[in-house]
């Protein structure tokens, strides 16, 4: 795959990944994407709260942020095809995100084989020192045509 292909891939991911219906429904924003990494944001919304006693957003909303960000990292990787699907995703919730604050996630492909992309992601609110969640995922890899 040429650099131009990778650039086109990255541009496509930047254009469509936050445009997917469920990403739009949650209000995900694109912060940045490069070869094998992506950064997305989940702005705070009252209708995404999981515990009304604390105002903390539901883990399910953070899961969607993590899954989408990891998917973006895979699709923008030079060795992976543009189509991917989640095989397995583990999320560790270290603490609740502060009510009112945007959650930002960054995902990176740790290793991409002919069949699998291994991805790690970390999410923060406004406090950069303590992550609110981390994710570890395995994603499918579709090989570009005529390759491998």
């Amino acid at each position: 795959m040429t650099d131009a292909d990778t650039e086109a891939r990255i541009a496509a991911v930047r254009a469509f990944i936050t445009d997917l219906p469920y990403a739009r429904a949650l209000g995900l924003d694109m912060l940045g994407v490069g070869a094998g990494w992506a950064e997305l944001a989940l702005p705070y919304r009252a209708d995404l709260v999981g515990d009304p006693a604390t105002g903390v957003m539901h883990g399910g909303a953070v899961s969607a942020l993590m899954d989408t960000t990891c998917g973006g990292a895979v699709m923008s990787h030079p060795d992976a095809g543009v189509a991917t699907a989640t095989l397995d995703l583990r999320i560790d919730y270290m603490r609740g995100a502060q009510p009112g604050q945007t959650v930002r996630a960054r995902a990176e492909c740790i290793r991409v084989t002919r069949t699998i992309a291994f991805v790690r992601a970390t999410a923060h609110d406004d406090d950069p020192d303590t992550p609110i969640a981390t994710a570890a995922g395995a994603f499918t890899v579709s090989r570009p045509e005529g390759d491998g």
Partner: peptide, 27 residues
């Protein structure tokens, strides 16, 4: 609902929607 879609080509549910659904069911 259409808003749950994550892959418009197949189409398929968004993995994040599935994950959120299962977490809601568990909680």
């Amino acid at each position: 609902r259409e808003t749950l879609i994550g892959n418009p080509v197949l189409p398929a549910l968004h993995g994040g929607a599935t994950a959120g659904f299962l977490e809601v069911a568990a909680l």
